[in-house]
Simulated assay, not measured.
Amino acid sequence: MPPFSSRVYLLRHGELIEQGVLAGQTDFLLSELGRAQLHQACNELTNIELVQSSTLKRCSEFARSFSHAQQIPLFLTDQLREFNFGDWDGCKYDDLWQQTDSPGLGDFWQSPWQVTPPHGESMRDFYQRIATWWQTLLIDIASNRTQAQLVLTHAGVIKQLLGIICQLPKESNQQNIFSIGYGKLICIDIYIDDSDKAWPRIVF
């Protein structure tokens, strides 16, 4: 098939109603500012053909309203959910830093590939979840010739995706060089060549 170009917009959810928490997979809602941040981010988006979203409410509620307003399909998936911090999920950062249990949050931040949160997700499983979703996305784009789509997700997910696109060593924790603010939109152009190979690039 002839080559073509597609565009994927990665959008982090807006500000949460709860502040200073390790949100993870806890289903917090957005604040009024958080909802406004998403509307502003999407104000000038055109030609979106599909919306994909994490199933967590801080992403999915806006995704539903946007897809309904634009009359375009919506696909909700657990693959786009944030990292599962297990027993730390939803806790205040201040409380977590004061805990003396082992492993602690500090241990995880320093060595996320060696330390798994109690009853949480391993970084290896998280990476594989995101990498699998990304490869499926590229195959779907090549098959369906999707011109543009919006993906609502979380900071941890976007950092992993940017690391994959930039071909960073996955166990180096270099993904943390990226800082993704609330309601921030990142554009990825994807060129599909005549052999259906995908060539993504980050557009600033």
Results as ranks from 00 to 15, higher is better:
residue 103 P to R: 00
residue 169 P to I: 05
residue 159 K to E: 00
residue 58 R to F: 03
residue 93 Y to T: 06
residue 6 S to P: 09
residue 36 A to Y: 07
residue 187 C to Q: 07
residue 142 A to G: 13
residue 124 R to D: 11
residue 170 K to S: 08
residue 16 L to A: 10
residue 155 A to E: 11
residue 106 G to R: 09
residue 152 L to N: 06
residue 98 Q to T: 10
residue 71 Q to M: 13
residue 67 S to C: 08
residue 73 P to D: 02
residue 136 T to E: 09
residue 33 L to W: 04
residue 186 I to E: 04
residue 35 R to D: 05
residue 72 I to D: 11
residue 42 C to I: 12
residue 103 P to W: 04
residue 144 N to D: 13
residue 201 R to P: 04
residue 65 S to Y: 01
residue 176 N to H: 14
residue 194 D to P: 04
residue 150 L to G: 07
residue 172 S to Y: 04
residue 90 G to F: 02
residue 168 L to Y: 05
residue 76 L to N: 10
residue 198 A to I: 03
residue 91 C to M: 13
residue 140 D to L: 07
residue 156 G to P: 01
residue 192 I to G: 06
residue 119 H to P: 05
residue 163 G to R: 06
residue 174 Q to T: 06
residue 19 Q to R: 12
residue 123 M to I: 01
residue 70 Q to D: 04
residue 86 G to T: 09
residue 49 E to I: 03
residue 34 G to E: 06
residue 179 S to E: 12
residue 197 K to C: 13
residue 155 A to P: 06
residue 6 S to F: 01
residue 41 A to V: 03
residue 26 T to R: 08
residue 138 L to T: 12
residue 38 L to C: 15
residue 74 L to G: 05
residue 159 K to P: 02
residue 126 F to T: 07
residue 198 A to P: 08
residue 29 L to K: 12
residue 97 W to C: 07
residue 139 I to R: 15
residue 48 I to V: 15
residue 202 I to E: 00
residue 11 L to S: 05
residue 68 H to F: 11
residue 189 D to Q: 11
residue 121 E to K: 13
residue 118 P to Q: 07
residue 135 Q to D: 13
residue 120 G to L: 12
residue 153 T to E: 08
residue 167 Q to H: 15
residue 130 I to E: 01
residue 132 T to H: 14
residue 132 T to Y: 02
residue 136 T to C: 08
residue 156 G to F: 04
residue 180 I to H: 01
residue 149 Q to L: 13
residue 179 S to K: 15
residue 53 S to F: 10
residue 55 T to Y: 07
residue 132 T to L: 13
residue 32 E to H: 10
residue 202 I to R: 13
residue 134 W to Q: 15
residue 122 S to Q: 05
residue 88 W to H: 08
residue 99 Q to N: 10
residue 36 A to S: 14
residue 39 H to G: 10
residue 44 E to M: 06
residue 96 L to W: 00
residue 185 L to Q: 09
residue 33 L to R: 11
residue 105 L to R: 00
residue 199 W to M: 06
residue 153 T to L: 09
residue 136 T to H: 09
residue 88 W to S: 12
residue 101 D to Y: 10
residue 31 S to E: 07
residue 160 Q to N: 07
residue 76 L to M: 14
residue 133 W to A: 09
residue 66 F to H: 06
